[in-house]
Design a protein around this nucleic acid. Structure first.
Lengths: 207, 207, 207, 207
DNA sequence: GATGAATGAGAATTCATTCAT
DNA sequence: AATGAATGAATTCTCATTCAT
C-alpha cells in the first residue's frame, strides 16, 4: 500500500500534488461524465490525464475515491447559484437571473451536469446523504423566501419546491439531453433556450 | 451450435418464445434502468428473469442485443403520446393533456424513462440514428401543428420545439431525478407535480 | 459474478463438482502448505490443479474461500486422534498410542501439519475462534480424563495441558521442521523418532 | 545512482549507518515475524522503522536483502545457547539449563523464533545451506558430547539428535504456537511450561 | 542521505461469451 | 431448450523497485 499523498491530509500540500490532483480530476470528470461510473475505467482516466495507471493510484487510493472527490468537490460549486438569490432584490428578476445562471452553467459545465445526472439516475448511492441534508436545507430556505415574496404579492402563487424542480429540470436538460436536443434541432440553441426559459418563468411568476 | 430463435427471424415464433422474450426484456429493463448499461451484468439480468445465463443468450445473442431490443421496443411506446395530439382538439387542452400523460408515464414507467435518460446521457450511442430521423420528424410535425395553432391565435407564442423540451424535461424529471425529489420533499408528490405543471403550461400557453 | 456451485449449497451436488472440489483443495493444500497464504497465488493453485484461473473461481468464490474451506475441512480430521483416547484403556498405553498416531499423521500428512502451523504462526487469523471453543473444549475434556487417571495413580503427575503441548510440539516438529531435521540427520528418521518419543513419554508417564 | 553503503562493504561504516541498520532490522523482524516473508511489505517495514521506502532501500538493496541480513544476523545468537553446553558440568543439569535458556528465549524473543519457524516451514529456501553445514556440525558436536556422557553412565540412553529436536520443539512451541497455547489456556503460562519441561527432561535424562 | 514521484510486473476478481451435453 | 462448465479479455489494485532531485 503506497502512501497516497492525498491520504496524509485532506488537501494536497505541494504545488506538484495540487497540479496533478487537478489534472486527474479534470480527466476523471471527462471520463465519468461520458461513460458513467461503471463505464469509466482507470485506464481511460489515466490516458486522459497523461499518467500511468499506478501513478493515478498514487494520488487517489481507488477509483471510488476519485469519483467521490470529484462529486464532493463539485457539489458546492454546483449549488452556489441558489445561494445567490437576493432577498432584497426584485422577486421575479431574482428568479429569472437564477434561471439564466443555471442555463449558463448547463452550457459551460455540461460534464458536471451529466456527472450529477448519472449519479442521481443510479439512485445517488454516494450523494444521497448530501441531498437529504444540505440540499434539502437549501431548498427549504429558498422555498421560505419564495413563499414570503408570494405572501407579499410580489410573485404569483406557485409551489416553491416544484418551481425549483422546474428550473433545474429545464436548464439541466440542455446539458444532460444535449444529444437529443441537437438531434432534433440540428444544432445547439442556447440563445433560443434562454429566451424560451425567460418567457416561461416570466409568464409563470409575474403576479 | 444452436441458433438463437431471435436470429432466425426478427420475431420469435412460438408462444413460449414470445413469453420468454418478454420475461427477459422485463428483467433487462429493471436491471439496465437501475445500473446503467455498463453496470448491468448478464448474471443479474438472468437472475432477475429466473433463467440461466446461457439460456438468456439462447434468446438474445449478446448483452448488446438485449439492450438494443429493449430500446427499440420501447421507443414507439415512449413517443406514442406525442402522436396523440389532436389537430381538431382545443390547443391548450391538447397540450395540457399531453403533459398530464407524460407525467403519468413518468410515474408509471420510471424504468423506461431512466433507460432513455441513461442512453442519452452517454451520447445516445445506439438510438442517435432514431433521434435524428424518427424523433426529429415527429417533432417537426408537432411543431408545425403548434405553429399553426399559434398562427390562428389559439395558443400563446412560444418556440414549439423548446416547448416540447420543457414538457419532456419537467415530466421526466420526476422519474429520472426521483431520488433527488424524494430527498428534498421527503416523499413523492405526483399530485403536486401534476397541479404545478398544469399551472406552468396553462400560464404559458393561454393566449 | 458467476454463480459458484459451491455457493448454492454447503456441499457440491454432482459427482463432477465433488471431484473438482477435491482436485482444487488438493492442489491448494500443496501450494498453501509450501508457500503460505500470502505466498500462494491462484495461478499456482490453478496450474497445480490443472485448471484455468477463472475455472478455479467458478468453484470457489475467492482465494480466501479456498483457504477457509481447506482449513475447515481439515480441522476435524486433524483433531480426531485426540477424541480416540479411550477412558477404559490403560492410561500410559492410550497416550503412547496417541503419540504414535500423531507422529504417523506428521509423516503421512505433512502438508496439513504445515498448513496449520502457518496459520497459527500468523496469529491464527482464521481459526482462532475454533481454537478458543472447540479445541479448548477438547483439551479440557482430555485434561479431565488425564487428571482422573492421575488421581487413580495410574499415570505420573504431569500438567495435562502442557503434556498435550509436548505431544503436539514433538510430533508435528517432524512435519513442520522436516527441512531442518533432514539437514541435521541427512535424511528422515521416522522410526528413530517413534522410538524416541515412545521412550520420552513412557519415562514421563509411568507412575 | 547512489550506492547503498551496505553494498560497498559488508558492514556499515559510520555510527549513523549502524544505527539505521539496527532500526531497519528491528522493524523488519517485527513485520516478517508477524506476516511472513511474502506477507510483509516494504511499506510496512518502512512505516514500522519510521523511514521512507526509498530510504529503506538506500540501506538495503532489496527486500530479499533485508530478510537475509536479518536471518544471518540472528542465526548465531539463536544457536548460541547450544554452544554453552559445558563438557565439564553435570550432564543432566547442563541440559536442563539449556532447556531453560531455550524456553527463556522463546519467551523473550518470540519474533526471532517465529521468523526461523516461518523460514523452515517454507523449506528454508535461504538458510538451508547454513543448516546443512553449521547447524549440522554443531549438532554433531553436541551429540558427541551427549554420547560421551551417556557412555560414562551419567545420562540415560536417548538418541542425542532426537533429544535436541525434543528440546527445540517443545521450547519453541511456546513462541511459535503462542496463539494456540493462549487459546487453550486462556493465557500464557511460562512458569508452568518451565516446570513442565524441567520434569519432562529430568525424568528422561536421569540415568 | 533523504524523499516525493513514478512504474512494470504481477495478483485477485469480474464478466461476456462459448462449449458440450 | 436448457444448463453446468469453462475461458479470454479486461479491470482494479498491490508492490518491489527505480528515478530525479
Amino acid at each position: 500500500m503506497n502512501k497516497s499523498p492525498a491520504q496524509d491530509s485532506g488537501t494536497p500540500r505541494t504545488r506538484i500534488q495540487r497540479a496533478k490532483n487537478e489534472v486527474i480530476l479534470e480527466a476523471a470528470l471527462t471520463v465519468f461524465a461520458r461513460e458513467g461510473f461503471r463505464g469509466a475505467t482507470l485506464d481511460r482516466i489515466a490516458a486522459e490525464a497523461g499518467l500511468s495507471k499506478p501513478n493515478l493510484l498514487y494520488y487517489f487510493p481507488s477509483k471510488d475515491a476519485i469519483y467521490e472527490a470529484l462529486l464532493q468537490g463539485l457539489l458546492t460549486t454546483w449549488l452556489d447559484p441558489l445561494r445567490a438569490l437576493d432577498p432584497q432584490g426584485d422577486p421575479v428578476e431574482e428568479i429569472l437571473a437564477y434561471v439564466r445562471r443555471k442555463l449558463e452553467m448547463a452550457r459551460d459545465y455540461p460534464r458536471e451536469s451529466r456527472l450529477f445526472a448519472g449519479e442521481i439516475l443510479r439512485g445517488a448511492p454516494l450523494i444521497r446523504p448530501v441531498l437529504e441534508t444540505e440540499l434539502r436545507r437549501m431548498v427549504d430556505d429558498s422555498a421560505a423566501l419564495i413563499a414570503r415574496w408570494q405572501g407579499e404579492g410580489r410573485l404569483a402563487e406557485v409551489d416553491p419546491r416544484h418551481l425549483l424542480f422546474s428550473i433545474w429540470a429545464q436548464t439541466q436538460h440542455y446539458a444532460d439531453f444535449a444529444t437529443q436536443v441537437q438531434s432534433v434541432l440540428g444544432q445547439d440553441d442556447f440563445d433560443g433556450a434562454a429566451a424560451h426559459l425567460d418567457r416561461v418563468f416570466r409568464r409563470l411568476l409575474t403576479p
